[in-house]
Nucleic acid binder design. Sequence first.
DNA 1: TAGGATT
Length: 385
Amino acid sequence: MVTQIISTMETQVSNGPSGTSLPNGPVISSNGATDDSKTNLIVNYLPQNMTQEEFKSLFGSIGEIESCKLVRDKITGQSLGYGFVNYVDPNDADKAINTLNGLKLQTKTIKVSYARPSSASIRDANLYVSGLPKTMSQKDMEQLFSQYGRIITSRILVDQVTAGISRGVGFIRFDKRNEAEEAIKGLNGQKPLGAAEPITVKFANNPSQKTGQALLTQLYQTAARRYTGPLHHQTQRFSMIPSLGKGPDPNNSSKPILDNLLNASYGVKSSPTLFPRFSPITIDSMTSLAGVNLTGPTGAGWCIFVYNLSPEADESVLWQLFGPFGAVTNVKVIRDFTTNKCKGFGFVTMTNYDEAAMAIASLNGYRLGDRVLQVSFKTSKQHKA
DNA sequence: TAGGATT
């Protein structure tokens, strides 16, 4: 059965660093070791096909990175959908959380938060819960489990076809493994207050522990994508565009992501009716232009010219706009040297032609606040201008 | 009855 995630509600407990802070630069403790609790971030819910390079490019647009790593499966090399970014400056880590947490990339909404110090005690602390009453919300479930420790994430799976009815199964990740153990002891086989049936609580399987068949399937898909490009879900991708006009994801408790940065242009009435719908004609006409006077796809990918950005626009705006369409390798806002304000345009590099074409077809003419964007493949003529 | 949260 097809399922989807209800949400990735944040817990009330802060995941932030503790201890004394310095205004700038790495924090050095008395024993000489660097304390990266204010610079090291964990990034979750990354798109499956995002590469290390794209990952670095996205987070490097915020500030200087000390190190970053997209975590991969040791055997298949596939992304595990999360990674770490350690900034040089704690202020940039803070900025990355404020501007990139909640960013929509393809079908995912990424989560950016401080990484907890690595420790054996925080591993294998994820629980699988089944037999939950269908009426139990994510909050209800957290309330039930929170007596056993600090909850890092929780989710309830829902049926897609019945528009979000709980399937009665979910996950609870505790901060510490021993907290998860206590929750199993206390809740497995117990009936929640008012429930007719007892719930089952056990350690979740590690998602990377796949069956041989699943591994083969994954390897096959990986190989197939090398030749045919990523699988496309155009309807899904397009359905995300009107959401640009709706502001931050209400399921994500991050601060209003881009509102401040964009003169609240995401928050006001960016009418979906003004949004140019997918047009096969548009795509065909662009396809016919390929190779005529475009700069792509040399090396890094297809370069896209974005015109009529506001003076306040920054790189995260471009990630926000183009990320949902596919692999973005680089974004650049062109700024005035003296004022550091955006000069009204920028560039985006996308790996795949069809994803770039789709982004252009969708975003050219898109109203961003009180501005109408002009989006096209970068041409040699524009390059000279 | 199945998510990609610790390099």
